[in-house]
């Protein structure tokens, strides 16, 4: 009896802990931030060395930014609907988000075409690092958008097979975090390019 009492009295403290998958997602996001931090600082370092071609950014970037912002809003709408177990609304919201994500990708390719028409090339004898950087930065962002869309498709599938509802939000919440992050990342990159192109 005494033995037991003692064990109760110095019960060890609970350690802080979060959801491991969500936490790992934030770490993953951190590494992506570092990747783009590297690109944008390389951009600045390189620009400071001169021999830098100045050109106009494609106008489509503005449209695309709007698309991404709207998709973030619909993503948020999806999360809210799921929390309220409003599943039909959830289906609409997540579908719109996915379609917007795909639209963004297609439009980015159009933006690239606009660049080529304007004589800004990725590689070759007529290219300049300023143009190459633009393609690399937007391209790498596009690659991450592709992974975001894949994530959205997985979430979409789970929504339509009724695996996501107010009691089971993890997957949707992680998807939303990632998607909002990609949105913010784009706004940062676009703002960066606007200021430094």
């Amino acid at each position: 009896m005494l033995e037991q009492q003692i064990d109760i009295t110095d019960e060890a403290q609970e350690t802080l802990s979060m959801h491991p998958q969500k936490f790992a997602m934030w770490l993953f996001i951190t590494s992506i931030v570092m990747l783009f931090a590297a690109f944008t600082s390389a951009y600045i370092v390189r620009q400071a060395e001169g021999n830098w071609l100045y050109f106009e950014l494609p106008n489509l970037f503005w449209t695309n930014s709007a698309i991404l912002i709207i998709s973030s809003a619909t993503m948020h709408w999806a999360v809210l609907s799921a929390r309220k177990d409003n599943l039909s609304m959830l289906k609409i919201a997540i579908s719109i988000t996915t379609v917007l994500g795909l639209t963004f990708l297609v439009m980015q390719v159009w933006a690239w075409q606009e660049l080529v028409v304007n004589g800004v090339f990725f590689a070759g004898s007529e290219s300049n690092p300023s143009g190459s950087f633009l393609y690399v930065i937007t391209g790498m962002h596009g690659v991450h958008i592709v992974s975001g869309v894949v994530f959205l498709l997985i979430a979409l599938y789970s929504v339509f097979t009724y695996k996501i509802h107010s009691k089971n939000m993890t997957r949707l919440e992680m998807c939303a975090t990632f998607w909002h992050f990609l949105d913010i990342l784009w706004l940062y990159l676009f703002g960066f390019l606007l200021l430094n192109h």
């Binding site: 590494s31 390389a42 990725f122 590689a123 290219s127 190459s132």
Partner: peptide, 24 residues
Amino acid sequence: LLSFPVLFAAALLLIFDRSFGTSF
């Protein structure tokens, strides 16, 4: 976690220089 992505960026630009004709 903070430094390897930067090596990845460096390597990627090197790959473009080697195989795609960019001039980073």
